[in-house]
Amino acid sequence: MANSSHSDGPDPEREARDRSRSLAERIAGARRETMVAEASAEFRQREMTGMGRAFRFAAEFVAAIIVGAGIGYGIDLLLGTRPWAMIVLLLLGFAAGVLNVMRAAAEMNADVSVGTASSSQVLDDDDD
């Protein structure tokens, strides 16, 4: 009789403590869960840009050259300096295209870190 009551003693105690701990974990988990889901969804979306990446570089590059050439063409038309402004601005457009592509590449690389950074940022925001 005395023995059984002794062994019964610590069991519900430990059980209560375990349950309390798992509850604490679940409470902390529930707070984070939604944000993590969002962040990971965004991250995945950003990761998938494989083919679109090539298209983006092309568009950035071509757009700058077209704009450069177009402005040069306009200046030539206005000032009658054909073809010099167009040549100069085509070169500038080429440079701008390279700049665009470099920026797009840097942006894409940053996006990966932004994806992780933004998740922590979101956590911070909600703590406030």
Binding site: A64, G68, L92, G93, A95, N100
Partner: peptide
């Protein structure tokens, strides 16, 4: 170059 780059944005 920066201006051309900026103007090329809507196009790209």
């Amino acid at each position: 170059i920066e201006i051309i780059s900026f103007l090329s944005r809507p196009l790209s």
